[in-house]
Design a protein around this nucleic acid. Structure first.
Length: 255
DNA sequence: ATGGCTAACATGGTTAGA
């Protein structure tokens, strides 16, 4: 089973890239973030034409998540149950016996801001949700845009980023607490190229300089992680005209 | 120098992203 996560930064703009990418990289499951579309505008027909089932939870202008899958999606749940939130950032579904939770973690803006506090609160709720889901689903994958670089090796210039949003200790500690309930970062199960990143700023020729962060993660339960055969970042779509600032991340599971 | 791009909403300039 091949799964991918991709923050497309507007599905309206990136639909051609997504279709081209899927044509050469057929996936069983794709988790999208920042679709930036209300559900009434979701390009359902175009996705279904690709032979994919789809579930989505979106809003105008901001946020928005969607799951595309070769097989039918079962038990679709939007949001974090019990956590009141206008922002459409979470979508769960069961596909082929695997529980999939697609997450778009809040950005956090700056350390100490209201949005930062919201990010930390949000991560506590996510952790509680994941703990409950793990008890019900031994095969669980939680993938998406975490807006946290787990370690300094996931940052192009750790000195320059030290203490700032995406790398700060409260955020990293929240991520470690999430992993501690029983998830593993699939990417780090394997030897990887030095300076592997999944996001590069649009400005300052950041992609050409590989000045990026690894913030898009595929986390899997122990039972699933042990079946992980590959995990990689595909930089190719980031090289196209008018790209998303994020690259897709792919994981393959022998199930 | 706290910017630099990009997208949405708007139709010029603000908000937000990371």
């Amino acid at each position: 089973m091949l799964l991918a996560t991709w923050n497309v930064n507007s599905l309206r703009v990136r639909l051609p890239h997504l279709k081209d990418w899927l044509a050469t990289n057929p996936m069983d499951v794709v988790a999208l973030q920042e679709t930036k579309l209300p559900d009434t505008d979701f390009p359902m027909d175009e996705i279904e034409t690709l032979g994919l089932h789809v579930a989505f939870s979106g809003q105008r202008t901001y946020n928005g998540v969607a799951i595309l899958a070769r097989q039918a999606l079962q038990d679709v749940v939007a949001g974090i149950p019990g956590f009141e939130d206008e922002q459409k950032r979470v979508l769960a579904a069961t596909i082929g016996g695997v529980r999939v939770i697609d997450v778009y973690v809040p950005n956090g803006q700056t350390v100490g801001s209201d949005k930062f506090e919201y990010k930390l609160r949000w991560l506590v709720s996510l952790r509680e949700y994941v703990a409950a889901e793990l008890a019900r689903h031994p095969r669980l994958v939680v993938l998406g845009d975490y807006n946290i670089a787990p370690e300094d090796r996931d940052v192009h210039d750790p000195k320059a980023w030290e203490g700032s949003v995406h790398v700060s200790e409260p955020e990293r500690s929240s991520l470690r607490a999430l992993l501690a309930v029983g998830l593993e970062d699939c990417f780090r199960r394997f030897e990887q190229p030095e300076k592997s990143f999944s996001w590069w700023d649009y400005r300052m020729m950041a992609f050409r300089r590989n000045a990026g962060l690894r913030i898009d993660l595929i986390l899997a339960s122990a039972r699933l992680a042990e079946k992980c055969a590959e995990c990689r970042i595909d930089k190719a779509p980031r090289k196209l005209e008018r790209p998303s600032d994020h690259a897709p991340v792919v994981a393959r599971f022998d199930i």
